[in-house]
Nucleic acid binder design. Structure first.
Length: 367
DNA sequence: TCTGGGGTCCTAGGACCC
DNA sequence: TCTGGGGTCCTAGGACCC
């Protein structure tokens, strides 16, 4: 029996934070602006650059200082996650009209399995309709990749921005994917890329070339290498699982001080403020956590994380406040730090806990 | 020179249990 | 005096992504 080919979309909102800022701030329309950093201190890094800023080679990840050196009149817009979440919710609700198999890739990208609808309507027509309506109704421009696997759809959506639609069948891989720079292979980041570059693995075609296998295996584990090959050739078996990220695995929040500090009581005070924020989220979302992690970034950017678990799941602020103090006093060594972070780990939904707990008692009752 | 914040996943070592 | 092997949980660090 012939295995049915899936039709997967990867829908990627273009310059998402910048688009949201523009939608609520029409005066930005003719400005060269970026989202991120701090407006007052003019420090930090860019989260999203408007397309006009990108033309000047101002990109996300770049420091505000560097961007201002390129264009001193640059408009800086502070991040507003409430706003982005509102647009993101609209985005995902809209997509649900086309499929119930939707996986949240991030705040601004979605994988959809449209195999069922594609039996009646041509995939390209579906994609065009989604793209047009997202732009018309919500003023959210997007690029869409169409492919038989999640990975290829993701690579495809990246190829034409903004407002692109790219089809990547297995038979298109050699022509469309092989020329792409290895730096743009999803999963190769800033640490691995320089090693590959030094080994003269410049594009995806070089990567899959069997003659380069030995060189690559000096850089990547064999398993990782094989996984990449499977992804590139469309052999990956990932599915669009709507439940995959429905429950967060961790909830964290962190803060970079405006100046470096080594005052233990001040740091503890700030970390408790952070705990309050993440605890609010834990309770609002009906979740329980079993552990806490703290993160300290020293003045020279060394990061340490320290975590500890408790005996039972909890959502009590007091329990985690005690745990936080315990961790902090055990682990903080009076180093000068620039950032403090606090996070819940090992999270489950409250309703699952009740279920397990009742079952547990029921079994005891039977004995 | 400058380097944010929120996540996921993987690895490796050690403790502990059988 | 010498002491296996498998499984699971916990902790810390690191790569990567948006």
């Amino acid at each position: 029996m012939k295995k049915e080919v899936k039709i997967i979309f990867h829908v990627d909102l273009n310059a998402f934070f910048a688009t949201c800022a523009l939608n609520v701030n029409p005066h930005l329309k003719n400005k060269i602006f970026v989202v991120g950093g701090s407006k007052t201190s003019r420090k930090g890094v860019i989260s999203s650059a408007s397309y006009k800023a990108r033309k000047l080679k101002i990109n996300s990840g770049m420091s505000i200082v560097d961007a201002l050196a390129i264009y001193p009149k640059l408009e800086i817009v502070e991040t507003d996650f409430l706003l982005y979440n509102k647009y993101s919710n609209d985005f995902f609700s809209f997509l649900k009209k086309y499929s119930d198999k939707i996986l949240k890739g991030s705040i601004d990208e979605a994988y959809m399995d449209v195999s069922r609808l594609a039996k009646k309507v041509h995939p390209l027509k579906i994609a065009k309709e989604i793209q047009t309506n997202l732009n018309k109704i919500y003023k959210l421009p997007c690029s869409i990749g169409i492919a038989p696997t999640l990975f290829l759809a993701k690579m495809a959506s990246d190829m034409k921005k903004p407002l692109g639609i790219t089809i990547m069948r297995k038979k298109d891989v050699e022509e469309k994917l092989f020329p792409i720079s290895i730096r743009n292979l999803y999963g190769i980041g800033s640490k691995t890329y320089p090693f590959l570059e030094r080994a003269k693995i410049m594009n995806i075609g070089d990567f899959v070339n069997i003659a380069n296998k030995e060189k690559i295996l000096e850089i990547l584990k064999e398993e990782t290498y094989n996984d990449f090959l499977d992804h590139i050739y469309g052999r990956s078996s990932d599915i669009v699982d709507p439940d995959k990220y429905s429950i967060p695995k961790s909830i964290s929040n962190e803060k970079t001080f405006s100046y470096n500090v080594d005052n233990a009581s001040l740091i503890l005070e700030e970390s408790k403020k952070i705990l309050l924020i993440i605890h609010q989220r834990l309770v609002n979302e009906d979740l329980l956590a079993k552990g806490l992690t703290i993160k300290l970034k020293s003045a020279n950017f060394r990061v340490i994380t320290r975590s500890r678990q408790i005996n039972d799941y909890s959502d009590s602020y007091e329990v985690f406040e005690n745990l936080l103090e315990e961790l902090f006093f055990d682990k903080y060594n009076n180093e000068v730090i620039r950032l403090i972070g606090v996070g819940f780990i090992n999270i489950i939904p409250l309703k699952n806990y009740k279920l397990d707990y009742n079952l547990f008692n029921y079994q005891k009752f039977l004995k």
